[in-house]
Write a protein that binds this DNA or RNA. Structure first.
Lengths: 345, 345
DNA sequence: CAATTAAATGAAATCGGTTTCATTGAATAT
DNA sequence: ATATTCAATGAAACCGATTTCATTTAATTG
């Protein structure tokens, strides 16, 4: 048997008052006479009593808890974002449930149910599928049902058919800046590496890439747009494909910095110098981008602003205030040493 | 006003049964006639009803929830460990609260209270101070009181005066392997860089370093043992100190891989080649260690085993089973290219 | 000092489930 | 067909806090 918990009744009894009065001391919602207060506080401290927040939440119908659903906490982008968001949520009095889905729809579904049952006040969803596979559609339906009762904010992603509040990085202008940078550096043959079809942020980036390239009068060679994942390993794989191309681009935009790192690693290994032989740029400005040689030119995500805005929107929704349906967080270009002016050999 | 929740009473009414029967369907704890079952399940699905786990937890006195207290989720060591642990905890039916303290005692205390109030069934504490500052001692006292009612497992750390269950990496033998490796590579002048005095894992490593060096008949130059933090930036700082030494070691052991990366980066920048001029080894085998050039020789932490064991011990404690007081997880040496045979120039 | 007003405290209902115990209904045995 | 047994269901208590409303106590005024 579990050791008996100390409850507000025990405290009340020992202090010769009613539970109501103890509660008033705990919450500060009403005055108690100083001498009564002292008595009660003494007993509370004697037993190191902490009120059971489950009971409180049950009554108040709010748990002061936010759930995070994300693909992989091990990815620097997510860990940084979560860290910032969590710290800010704490300031607002919310603690956070972490749900690592490992990109597994089944896990997502399991976690989503769990968060609902745990009565989280709101959910931050990092990621976003726009696939139309059966499981994904099912999951989208589930999400919609959840959203009828629990506010959800999507960060840097969306889900097809789900009309949610979104806070997102301006990936379009980010990619645009990268393309323009490379064009200004005299590159004409540019590729896009990494990411995964059906993940919304990848799709946004790729579409923007294609659009800008066409606007600038440079076509896009289909063979230069290569899917992969989001990790260093994905970058390594896609770099291998890159190497086997008959005609290669002179510059590549990677779906994120980890992919860029993988690409640089493999290119270097096979004797291609970055940036001398190939220019490589990334996205996210994870903390590694500035440390990994040669220093990766990338687009900086404003983690603080992204996280805080997401939490703010969510908390507004929780409190049934109006909230902007879509907030776009600006980015900035971070110039480092992984790309340079192209010149024919 | 919040939209009214659907409760088991609503379901019961609509299905023309008592709440007790609905509960039996939900939990599976007792039989109900198939036709009754069907009726109830239909109503549950119609309203997409999920039972409020707060109410259940309140009654059962267990929340099926585990709290993680850790310094910084943004550090690959922690994010990897958390990811593994969390996945395993989920298998056992537990969800996890994440608490990022950012090494701030005040935050730790706040989070600790919050976890207790939220009635977590147990706590995994990653980190560990053995300082004797006032706030740290206060915090240790707090921890002890929490441990009277809530099981806590310390992972790779301890707290002075706190007698807790510990699951830890065999940092001693890890450091020993590193020292022996370097000695076998003919290094005699070896330094230890990074970490922070008073953090238990640092202290363990440093003490082992000093002991082994003395056992091997090589003294330790105090000036070659330099404190710093645990990040790449810490490595950069401490590398700057290293560079300003009149006499430098020919090899350094870093408190972890991130520090090693920072060190390598700065040494390289100032014209010292790793491993040609200085051998550098790390600890943890974070995913970056193999990717960061030249590839860091390091000690591999067994993240899966560490995480699973910690969860297992914690769950045993929760269920009031006996559990080993201290479990030591073996390490292994991972040879890469950041160190080599020393030879006089 | 009594009467009135204001402040402090207590009693009881409530949140939404689960579970025990009692009861009803169905199934089996006589 | 009736008595007996067993399965299915319902009523009510419970978990531990908060809050409203009623009541007691203290403070103020005449």
């Amino acid at each position: 048997m579990k050791k008996e918990n100390i409850t507000i009744y025990d405290i009340a009894k020992e202090a010769n008052v009613s539970p109501a009065t103890v509660s008033r001391v705990l919450t500060g919602n009403a005055k108690v006479r100083p001498q009564t207060m002292r008595k009660i506080v003494d007993v509370i401290e004697k037993y190191n009593f902490r009120p059971n927040s489950l009971a409180r939440s049950l009554l108040h119908k709010q748990s002061k808890t936010i759930g995070f659903i994300l693909p992989d906490i091990n990815h620097p982008f997510f860990s940084t974002l979560v860290q910032k968001s969590e710290a800010y949520a704490l300031e607002l009095g919310y603690t956070t449930f972490l749900c690592n889905t490992m990109n597994n729809s089944e896990n997502e579904s399991k976690y989503l149910q769990s968060l609902v049952e745990k009565q989280v006040d709101g959910i931050i969803y990092l990621g976003g599928r726009i696939n139309d596979t059966d499981t994904d559609q099912e999951y989208a339906e589930e999400m919609k049902k959840v959203m009828e009762r629990t506010p959800v904010v999507f960060v840097n992603g969306q889900m097809s058919g789900v009309d949610a509040h979104i806070v997102r990085t301006d990936e379009e202008s980010g990619v645009e800046m990268l393309v323009e940078l490379l064009i200004n550096l005299n590159h004409k043959k540019i590729g896009f590496l990494g990411g995964l079809e059906g993940i919304s942020s990848t799709d946004v980036k790729k579409n923007t890439f294609v659009n800008v390239m066409e606007t600038k009068g440079l076509g896009v060679n289909k063979g230069w747009v290569l899917d992969a994942g989001f990790s260093i390993e994905s970058g390594e794989e896609v770099a291998a494909q890159f190497l086997s191309l008959k005609e290669r681009p002179t510059a590549v935009i990677c779906a994120n910095d980890l992919v860029a790192i993988g690409v640089i690693k493999v290119l270097t290994k096979f004797g291609l110098k970055v940036p001398d032989d190939v220019s490589v740029v990334g996205f996210d400005d994870i903390y590694l981008a500035k440390h990994f040689p040669p220093g990766i030119t990338t687009i900086s995500q404003n983690y603080d602003q992204l996280g805080q805005t997401a939490i703010n929107v969510l908390v507004d929704l929780i409190n049934e205030k109006e909230a902007k349906k879509e907030t776009v967080i600006p980015t900035s270009l971070v110039l480092r040493d992984s790309c340079k002016l192209f010149s024919e050999k």
